[in-house]
Amino acid sequence: MTTETLATPDPTIDPAAEPGDRPLTVTQRRRRPRILAHVGLILVAVVMLYPLLWMVTSSLRPNDQIFTHPGLFVDTFDLSHYPDGWNALSKPFGSYLLNSVVVVLGSVVGNLVSCSMAAYAFARLKFRAKTVAFAAMLLTIMLPVHVLIIPQYVLFAQLGWINTYLPLIVPKLLATDAFFVFLMVQFVRGIPRELDEAARIDGAGHARIFLQVILPLMVPALATTTIFTFIWTWNDFFSQLIFVTDPDLYTVPVALRQFIDAQSQSDFGALFAMSVVSLVPVFLVFLFGQRFLLRGIATTGGK
């Protein structure tokens, strides 16, 4: 059903070329749809960028102007929210950034290792109860977190993990993020079997096939996992709020909420300023990580 909407201007049939037009050169003919594509993309980009730009401009406005100005024009550049916000909480904001980095790095490593292993098993190995196991894996992500959080809290409290980052990181090391297992399964299944077969004929075991054949070919999936784990963990508020109670250990999303409270006077300027600051690492990771998205089978050589 999706195919119709996917039709993009076909360079070989130029709809804009009317009979009476001067014949276009080949390059011109190719360029016109390109320009259309650019115009379209730029339009979309403006809509996409607006919220971020608004957040940046809001962080430069006095607090009492933030909620009256939906526009992007700033008449008074006020940078003070940045140093104020940085130092407003009981610790400098950098320490919350650092806490988040610890949690995020643990989660990324955990997801990369454990999910790719599980994905290899589901995609390439034959074993009993595979379908059941796969279904069980998917079922575990169908329950809303709000009914699981209390038993989870009890469990982690019994393990003595409350107020540490363990409840946030250990589950990732144990492939509980079925999203990424499934994602990688789909990617591994897209890698031609002949490549494994060739390696097996050379005497490679599963460990070697996994490490030397499959992993290099699923770099785009690994990059996707890294980027998403980073961003989602970086923004995850609820579990970080529940499991970490010591303010010195607060992560960025929890720390950001300290600027505001619905029932008292809040500092939205500082909130937006620190939100902008906390976006920088995420954006850098995305910029850097997306290079690896391009390293598909096509560029790594394939067969």
């Binding site: 699981l148 589950p171 144990l174 509980t176």
Partner: peptide, 29 residues
């Protein structure tokens, strides 16, 4: 047989997670 053994290794983290962390809260709910 070879696959089953390998599967146990590759799935080890997931199995530990499933029975150690996931199943308890799910059944409790």
């Amino acid at each position: 047989r070879r696959d089953s053994r390998a599967a146990l290794v590759f799935l080890a983290p997931w199995l530990v997670g499933l029975f150690g962390i996931t199943v308890g809260p799910v059944l409790a709910s």
